[in-house]
């Protein structure tokens, strides 16, 4: 049973990592526009919007 002491924390950490990733995705608005996201990849722009450094 000693293996549990190692395996359970590992499993939970991996799970927490996934959760953190999902929460980050939700917070950065990746679920806001499910219609647009699908078609956005069809419009590969050669000259993307420039990111100016603040």
């Amino acid at each position: 049973m000693n293996a549990l002491l190692l395996l359970i924390p590992i499993a939970l950490l991996l799970g927490l990592g996934g959760l953190a990733l999902c929460l980050w995705a939700a917070r950065s608005g990746q679920f806001d526009d499910l219609d647009g996201a699908g078609s956005r990849i069809l419009f590969d722009d050669d000259k993307p919007i420039r990111r100016t450094k603040p």
Partner: peptide
């Protein structure tokens, strides 16, 4: 959506232009 974002994106001042299609 693409046209609006691209036209705005080519304005020198614009930092972010994101149009939600939904």
């Amino acid at each position: 959506v693409w046209l609006v974002e691209s036209v705005l994106g080519r304005e020198p001042e614009v930092i972010r232009a994101r149009l939600n299609a939904t």
